[in-house]
Amino acid sequence: MTDQAYNFAYLDEQTKRMIRRAILKGVAVPGYQVPFASREMPMPYGWGTGGVQVTAACLVPEDRLKVIDQGADDTTNAVSIRKFFQRVAGVAVTEATQEATLIQTRHRIPDTSLSAGQILVYQVPIPEPLRFLEPRESETRKMHELEDYGLMHVKLYEDIARHGQIATSYAYPVKVEDRYVMDPSPIPKFDNPKLSNSPALQLFGAGREQRIYALPPFTHVVSLDFDDHPFVPSKADHACDLCDASDSYLDEVIIDDQGGRMFVCSDTDYCGGRRAAGHVGRLGEEAI
């Protein structure tokens, strides 16, 4: 049931047009951060306002929306955003990755492969991959213009010199179509390979920082690395204790005060799907 007090998908039409134009520019120049006049939303900046605005601009009434935070559909902020769109756009919702036409995510790419026609919308806190090396927008904009990414390579190289490896485990920078260095949002680097050549359209919204960027389907995305220190996507060296998956990203859960812990899929839909199909992990029970 749509809340009649608000326009379809909350935003007024002029605001949606402005966001839609920015999304199209982002699609046309993959990896480039398009400035847009982000609006104040009824949820705080930093809680997904960029993703929410991008989703609002893309939704059609026939969509089936999935919202995840940390891979899970039932985390409080995911619940809150899902409820918002049920209320203001009247769209159907789902937890099944395969059934969703549009997925809004914070910090994860689903472990179930995405398919053509799906849109994955990322909530982005700091869209600028160079921000923590150079705090000034005026400077980083110049670096992107000149394709001057030396500072980033120096940082990664210093990591290797100090730690023997690149000490970035999430929000790991990528290069898009051999042109723009892009921040993939704070996804674990385990998810980075899924950015490249995905059949789904990937849109990134940073509300507070007023930026939108995009990866069209089948866009070539490379995680930055060095020949002698190639990029390694990593995760906990375990299988899921509930569904026995060895190919999913795992959360570590402390289960007692004796140091006992277990590892479970961060993607709750992926894990549930495997258990329903009869897979049983070390601590799992057979699905009924």
Partner: peptide
């Protein structure tokens, strides 16, 4: 202050995926 308070307070939201990847990294190092 609306931008600032939103971003400041968002660190209350779960970050366990990021934290998990940091945990793996620190253990490995």
């Amino acid at each position: 202050n609306i931008q600032a308070t939103g971003f400041l307070e968002h660190i209350k939201l779960p970050h366990y995926v990021d934290f998990q990847s940091e945990l793996e990294l620190v253990r490995k190092l």
